[in-house]
Write a protein that binds this DNA or RNA. Structure first.
Length: 467
RNA sequence: UCCCCGGUAGCUCAACCGGCAGAGCGGGUGGCUGUUAACCACUAGGUUGGCGGUUCGAGUCCGUCCCGGGGAGCCA
């Protein structure tokens, strides 16, 4: 089959292509024509935000008939000469000499118009929405970010570990979980099986979709040194917000011989690196999002990429909040969790940039976080960004066997399910740390997209698993 | 799950105190030789989310269910 040039490559070196005959393939964004004369097709092939202007002129029999069939949404091939465009809005265009129509799009039925659509509407046509400017741009940024995540870690000696999607421990403390079973809920168990209902099930015990790869990543960090996982994660919480999904992607690095400070520095370097990549490699998309989605975007990204993040302790945060004159709905008091309004106040009003918060009260955090010398706090860190809130959560892990067992006892975690996790502290235990970053929240942050459902191709939320 | 707001043409939205269902865009037809959300003219298009109630009369008021959005909780 004929293979054309990517439109993005054409724009990258316009001088080189001027006067040459090229072949392009893509989808018609708009068409402006006159029956008697010159016509204009804006062609987009997904390689760039900007479309290529195609000039059509009357020629030969059957040509206008073909042009009539080419409507918004059609897939076509165009062969023609790259020329200087006399019009405004583009510097080059292609004067068509041959056009082939691959697939039509009935204009009366095609759901995408030239004008702007609401995100709510586009979600209902998730099979067509990547053809829009915003969703297409978000998809390219997401792809580039995913690659950059691998680049960052691979360049620094980390190994990529595939932690399991299906797990059998259900009390990692990260909320509601999805059950994995081959049993049919519509088919009641016969009484013999009912004594041990899991006997007939695939894994012969309760199984679930992972809520985090961290505990398994720790296993490999204590063998390979520095590792990271990057994959889908699942939460069955009935969360209906612009920041939550039932299925989302998470990056979780885990490093042996790293304390909390090392962990924090890695996380900050990581975020700055990713923002730098987006600014450097997706300028067209950033410009677009800045113009149509979030006017403050450029300022926000440059701020985060260059300036130092603010880093404070939980105790200092509580101090700042109690002294502020702001009226909060929820109380501020040492020992209570910071609410969304408090986080927003700190990152948006007090500092106006990303904020790292360290050393949270022990009672607020999970069993695996390392207990500090004061015995009241744990070596935890949250990184908050303006607009999105918490984007990274991490900690130094408890490597001391006796303290870990005490923590599990206090939090009511059954040791049987975690014998392997405990054994890591019996055999060559070592200080280690890690953190988790939600990919979709990062996409939200770097694009300014308000709802997380536009930061992932096929959002899964309560009541929604279409497409 | 809780609180608030909304659901009217394919899309985005109007419709005053309860009184004949509207516009822009999109679609169709015709016109236009350099357009850029092209332009000009004409035209088709509706079970006002579902069910029930109040009323002479309901898009509008009441009840209920469904769906969407914003916020909260849970978290990444």
């Amino acid at each position: 089959m004929e293979k054309g040039i990517r439109i993005a490559d054409l724009f990258r070196d316009e001088q080189k292509w001027l006067g040459k005959t090229v072949l392009v393939q893509g989808w018609v964004k708009t068409k402006r024509d006159s029956k008697a004369g010159v016509g204009f097709i804006e062609l987009n092939d997904g390689s760039s935000l900007k479309g290529l202007q195609i000039i059509t002129e009357q020629q030969g029999r059957g040509y206008s008939e073909l042009l009539g069939k080419i409507t918004t949404g059609s897939a076509i091939l165009v062969e023609g000469i790259v020329s200087v465009s006399p019009g405004k809005g583009q510097s080059i265009e292609v004067r068509a000499e041959r056009i082939h129509l691959y697939g039509r799009a009935d204009p009366a039925a095609y759901p995408l118009q030239k004008k702007r659509h609401s995100f709510e509407y586009l979600r209902q046509i998730a099979h067509l929405r990547p053809r829009t400017n915003t969703i297409g741009a978000a998809a390219r940024v997401r792809s580039r970010l995913s690659f950059a995540i691998h680049q960052f870690f691979q360049d620094r000696g980390f190994h990529y570990v595939h932690t399991p999607i299906i797990t059998s421990s259900d009390c990692e403390g990260a909320g509601e979980i999805f059950r994995v079973t081959t049993l049919d809920p519509a088919q009641p168990l016969i009484s013999a099986e009912a004594e041990d209902p899991y006997k007939a099930d695939f894994f012969a015990k309760p199984a679930f979709l992972t809520v985090s790869g961290q505990l398994q990543a720790e296993i490999y960090a204590l063998a390979l040194g520095k590792v990271y996982t990057f994959g889908p994660t699942f939460r069955a919480e009935n969360s209906n917000t612009s920041r939550h999904l039932a299925e989302f992607w998470m990056v979780e690095p885990e490093m042996a011989f790293y304390d909390l400070e090392d962990d924090l520095n890695t996380a900050l370097e990581f975020i700055k690196y990713l923002i730098g990549v987006v600014l450097g490699e997706c300028p067209e998309e950033v410009e677009f999002f800045g113009r149509y989605i979030e006017p403050e975007l450029m300022k926000r990204l440059e701020n985060a990429a260059q300036s130092s993040f603010e880093v404070i302790t939980y105790t200092e945060a509580v101090d700042i909040l109690t002294r502020s004159k702001e009226r909060f709905v929820f109380p501020v008091e040492w020992g209570l969790d910071l609410q969304a309004e408090h986080e927003r106040y700190l990152t948006e009003k007090v500092f106006g940039r990303p904020v790292g918060i360290l050393n949270f009260p022990r009672a607020l955090k999970p069993f695996y976080m390392r207990v500090n010398d004061d015995e009241k706090t744990v070596a935890a860190m949250d990184i908050l960004v303006p607009g999105t809130g918490e984007i990274i959560g991490g900690s130094q892990r408890e490597e001391r066997l006796d303290v870990l067992l005490e923590q599990m006892r206090l939090k009511g975690i059954p040791t049987d399910d975690y014998h392997w996790y405990i054994e890591l502290r019996e055999f060559g235990s070592a200080p280690h740390s890690g953190f988790g970053l939600g990919l979709e929240r990062l996409v939200q942050f770097v694009t300014g997209i308000p709802n997380i459902r536009e930061a992932i191709p096929f959002p899964r939320t309560p009541g929604h698993a279409e497409f």
